[in-house]
Amino acid sequence: MGNLAIIVDLETTGLDSGSDQIIEIGAIKVDLDTGEVVEQFQTFTKPDDVYTFFGDEEELDEEDVEPDGLDPFIVELTGITDEMLEGAPSNPEAVEAFFRFAGDLQIWAYNAGFDSKFLNVHTEEHRPLKDVLALAKRTFPSLANHKLATVAQELNISIEGAHRAMADCLITKEVLLKGIEFQRENPHPFHHGFKASDYRPKEEGMFFGKIIVFTGALVAMTRDGAATHASQFGFKIGSSVTKKTDYLVVGIQDLSTLAGHDKSTKQRKAEELITEGVKIEILTENDFIRMCGIGE
């Protein structure tokens, strides 16, 4: 199936998720190993406050309705007009359709905190979004700023169609792939942006109920990619080794960070617990790949 992930981008009526609303959602399903776009999702969505009503609702007639409409700045920026939103689903309906498209796959966005606030206000189950901006900052630390257009220019990526959701998704994909490549070539023990709690274990997975922890840099995939695979097989991703840990996957260690030790703190903790009778299995990256059948 490949190392699949979702990239999403929103166009909104403004920057405040408390008062502004979504007008377009674009998303792509990407194979992070090959860069191939497997599937696309796009919908306009009509804000529920496009029209302002005056007087008693029971006495309204057409003369009492004054169109409020989109801010001309937003129309100019995005090219999206009020006419394009007519008949579009509501924000909650559009968000629900997007999450159906995303399924259990990991979701990435550029400046994910922005998109997350607008999406998660319409769902009871908070879905974490991974931030491509964090990868861009690590990959291109010397840039004057890390706006998507600035990073795209650094990569010689066309920004034609920018500020429309699908175009921004495709630009973000190239930045994400470059960031993943940088991580692979420059392994870092802290794996900037990695957060174990971002990964939801799939209940249908064969390892549901088991906890897996990663330490060190992986060769065949990023830490994010490995955690995504593991969660798809039902694993809960642990941030540290405890008595509840079932598996520890050991990658390449950066000896300069180990304070004179030849093993990471996580591996030493696992070995200590094993001697106390705790059942923890220590795996190499290849063991993990074979166990999950990745690439078969």
Rank of each mutant, 00 (worst) to 15 (best):
L248K: 01
A149G: 11
Q183Y: 09
T172V: 08
M84G: 08
V241A: 05
G209V: 01
I6D: 15
K202E: 10
G260S: 09
A27G: 12
A112G: 15
G55V: 09
I6Q: 12
E63F: 04
H261F: 10
H146F: 00
K178P: 10
E124I: 04
F98G: 14
L60E: 14
E174H: 14
Q153D: 12
K137R: 15
A162R: 12
F41C: 11
T81Q: 03
E57G: 03
K210Q: 09
K266F: 04
G14E: 08
G205W: 00
E285A: 09
G79C: 08
V175I: 15
L143H: 02
L105Y: 15
D68M: 06
P67Y: 01
Q21W: 00
F73Y: 11
M1V: 11
S197A: 11
L60D: 14
M221I: 03
T123F: 00
E203M: 04
A162G: 13
I22R: 09
K29V: 08
L148A: 03
D71V: 12
F118S: 15
D56Y: 07
R290Q: 15
T34R: 06
S239C: 01
P67L: 04
A149L: 02
D64S: 14
I211L: 02
G79D: 10
D49Q: 07
F288T: 10
T12M: 11
K178Y: 13
K244D: 15
F207A: 03
K29C: 14
I237N: 08
D254A: 07
I180P: 07
E124T: 11
E36I: 04
S239Y: 02
F101N: 05
C292P: 07
T275V: 12
Q40N: 10
D71E: 10
E185Y: 10
V250K: 06
H188G: 13
T13A: 10
